[in-house]
Amino acid sequence: MNAVPKIPSSLTDKQFHYCPGCSHGIIHRLVAEALDFHNVRENTVGVASVGCSVLAYNYFNIDMQQAAHGRAPAVATGIKRVLPGSIVFSYQGDGDLASIGTAEIVHAAARGENITVIFVNNACYGMTGGQMAPTSLIGQVTSTTPKGRTQPEAGYPIKVTEMLSTLDGPVYLSRVSVHKPAQIRKAARSIQKAFRYQIENKGFSLVEILATCPTNWKLTPLEAVKWLENNMIPKYPLGEFKDVGV
């Protein structure tokens, strides 16, 4: 019997360090499958950010740079300007992209920089232990909003994808989720499309992916899936917010 395991060639065989049930592993796989699908693994440079996915360079079987906190879109810009024929993407969490890195993401999008951004939104700072993120929901209990996030103290969550959709620069902006098989299939198609637009030199694409953080939400992986469905999706509706690449 001749067995050929189907692990994407854009992933290494290193086991993820992520907690049980964390969505990062699914998203890594979807990104790797998209690179395999487009056959661009050997022509891609990825940019890891700061947060739980800081070690992404251990998992993606491609050339990678690790960026300072929030600056991945600027680093990706530098790479893309030197290598305009390469496929360049950043992989960023919500603390990295939507808090410390808001200037970099807004301006990379506004420039229409021909890069793809994978934006993982799990409504908390995972790596540092579950503090409030810019995307934490009103009422959400985190280690820095122990009584739940309230507007007078901590403001409202930021809807990055909607915000970027007001800009002329982006060609593709979508929000997907990876909490159920059907949503994962949609997410895979959306990520594929984002990379396809970059390959076709159409410009800036970003896919926001709603993700679970069972450890810091203090829920089991299955409870976390339900929490995402019941709490995040109503506030962060799924769909394509901009698609002018067709």
Partner: peptide, 19 residues
Amino acid sequence: CGNCILVCPDLAIIYEEVS
């Protein structure tokens, strides 16, 4: 159906081809 493969965050379940 592949659902388990899709939701597994750790590539612990994958397809293999058998010839």
